[in-house]
């Protein structure tokens, strides 16, 4: 009995691990969309155009997202302080982008603090992701 419970837990673990690695940018976008609909009845969908404006704006500070990720996120970026190369942010140019929700949230948290001076809203994150996914 105890053995079978352990096996079941193990199997569940593998399924969860499998699900975690199988995320796609569209999956993450779906999560943001669900959140956005729940928090506002006026939500009509994310906008790549709004996302692009957000991405290229300095929001009253020194940096924009484009400062490191460049005006064309399909190209290799460069950290504005350290000079370290940054892989392209657009999923079309780097298929590993936006395939891990935890990693995505971590970088939105850090970078929104640096660029916007606060956490980004779900709507802002969804718009930026819509913009990045629209780049082919």
């Amino acid at each position: 009995m105890r053995q079978s419970v352990r096996m079941l837990a193990l199997a569940a673990g593998f399924i969860c691990a499998g699900a975690a690695t199988a995320q796609t940018p569209a999956d993450l976008q779906g999560g943001y969309e669900k959140d956005a609909r729940q928090s506002s009845s006026a939500f009509t969908g994310f906008s790549p155009a709004r996302g692009e404006t957000f991405f290229k704006s300095t929001h009253g500070g020194d940096w924009s997202c484009a400062s490191c990720h460049t005006q064309d996120p399909r190209t290799v970026g460069k950290h504005v302080v350290t000079g370290k190369a940054i892989n392209p942010l657009a999923p079309a140019a780097d298929p590993a982008r936006f395939t891990d929700a935890v990693k995505t949230e971590k970088w939105f948290r850090r970078n929104c603090n640096d660029v916007v001076g606060r956490a980004c809203t779900t709507a802002e994150k969804g718009d930026v992701l819509a913009y990045l996914m629209s780049l082919k």
């Binding site: 302080v81 948290r109 850090r110 970078n111 603090n113 640096d114």
Partner: peptide
């Protein structure tokens, strides 16, 4: 780390 040389690295 939240203010790591001018960047949030938390």
């Amino acid at each position: 780390l939240d203010k790591h040389f001018g960047s949030d690295a938390s």
